Amino acid sequence: MGDHDAIPELALDWHQSGKKAALATVVETWGSAPRPVGSQLAISGEAGMAGSVSGGCVEGAVIAEALEALEDGKPRLLEFGVSDEDAFAVGLACGGRIRVLVEPVGAALPVALLADLVAARAQRTAIAYVVDVVRWQRRLAGPDDPDLGAVIAERMRSDKSGFEGETFVGIHNPPLRMAIVGAVHIAQPLVQMARLAGFAPTLIDPRPAFGAAERFPGETILDDWPDAALAAHGLDARTAVVTLTHDPKLDDPAILAALDSDMFYLGCLGSTRTHAKRVARLESAGVPADRIARIHAPVGLNIGAKSPAEIAVSILAEVIQRLRQG
């Protein structure tokens, strides 16, 4: 988690260190908006700030309101508009409006609730921060919530915070990750594309010649056997796994580990004939048919890709399709 994404964590740290803190959250947008719903800005009692709610065009006003909120202890729902004439100056094609919720930590946003949110994020647990902006009632909730469970589950799948009536549902999903087994030529463009799409990529390859740092400068590379590396890496509902080695001795342990997890995507390189042999091996190992059916193979959308970069595009497109469309 980068510093820009650790806004609740920073707000809690500021409050606990005696600096005071307020959290500002984009709760609604109309027209052209520089930051999506759910974006957050932390403001300290010393006027320090981290994060963003508008890319700079309304931060000054939000900070001023936040400092006042730290004095009177009351939350605020603010609305800002950017005219078409002023939009270009702040990087927008046209004007728009945003609503921003400002909550002083402790006085309005309970410290215990914020601490629980931070703990859930640290444990990579998807959670929703739910606040009724009329009654100012707050809670954390998940897909099993008796009132909003189905709505929260859908919002988590689509990574989309927003209003349900008078209640704002702020989605806090764990960061996306991609575990790539096989530091081959396709992996070189794939790690770059995955990062641009918001995934934290990790390469797994026990072969020193393939997983050399010189071939993947600056990348996280695990040189353990794939099943052990994936166990150390962790597999959950925000993790995609892609196997690229073409070697059953390396791919199969990774596939078995992935199929025994909650990962949302597993794609395996190889032709239709190669996959048929893979399926036969998995069936012989006792893997149920419904689990085998989770494998996307041949990996990637069928776009006629030829080069390593084109194949990487097809893989990433299929990963995103599975993430967003289920």
Rank of each mutant, 00 (worst) to 15 (best):
R281D: 03
G300Y: 05
T272G: 02
A150G: 10
R195A: 11
K19S: 14
R97N: 11
T243I: 11
T239Q: 09
T125C: 09
V53F: 13
P189M: 05
V134C: 00
K160F: 07
R139T: 08
A183H: 04
F80Q: 02
L101C: 12
L77I: 01
L222E: 11
A212D: 14
L282K: 13
R273D: 02
E154V: 04
I204G: 01
A87M: 02
V181A: 12
A87K: 00
R157S: 01
D159Y: 04
A317M: 09
A64Y: 06
S161C: 05
I63D: 00
Q325H: 14
L114F: 01
F168A: 00
L67K: 04
D159G: 08
P189A: 02
D159F: 07
K160P: 01
A128C: 12
K160D: 04
V130P: 06
H246D: 08
L92S: 10
P208N: 02
G73H: 08
I303T: 14
L114K: 06
P143A: 13
E9K: 11
S83H: 02
R273A: 15
R97T: 07
W14S: 14
V26N: 01
M1D: 06
E283M: 08
I180C: 03
A285D: 03
H4G: 05
G96P: 04
M263D: 06
Q325L: 12
A289Y: 01
H15S: 08
S32C: 13
A289V: 06
V242Q: 02
T167W: 00
E79C: 03
A258F: 09
T274G: 05
S83T: 15
A187G: 10
L101Q: 00
L235K: 06
R35L: 06
A66E: 07
R281I: 07
V299M: 13
P110Q: 05
S158H: 14
A228E: 11
D3R: 14
A21M: 02
D144G: 15
T29W: 00
P75G: 05
A141F: 12
Y129M: 10
V105E: 06
A194N: 03
L235P: 12
T167Q: 07
S284H: 13
M1G: 15
R139Y: 02
A6W: 01
M156H: 08
R324S: 09
D227N: 13
L23C: 12
A232M: 03
P146G: 11
S39G: 03
D247M: 07
L113S: 07
A179C: 09
A128V: 08
L235V: 11
A64M: 06
V105L: 01
A305E: 13
A115R: 14
G326W: 12
A61N: 03
R273I: 01
R155Q: 15
H185T: 07
H4K: 15
C94N: 08
R207E: 07
A126M: 04
L190V: 09
R278F: 00
D260W: 00
I311Q: 10
A11I: 11
E9P: 04
S158C: 05
P288L: 12
H233P: 02
A122F: 02
A179L: 14
G81S: 14
A213S: 09
S161E: 07
E310P: 03
F163E: 05
E103N: 08
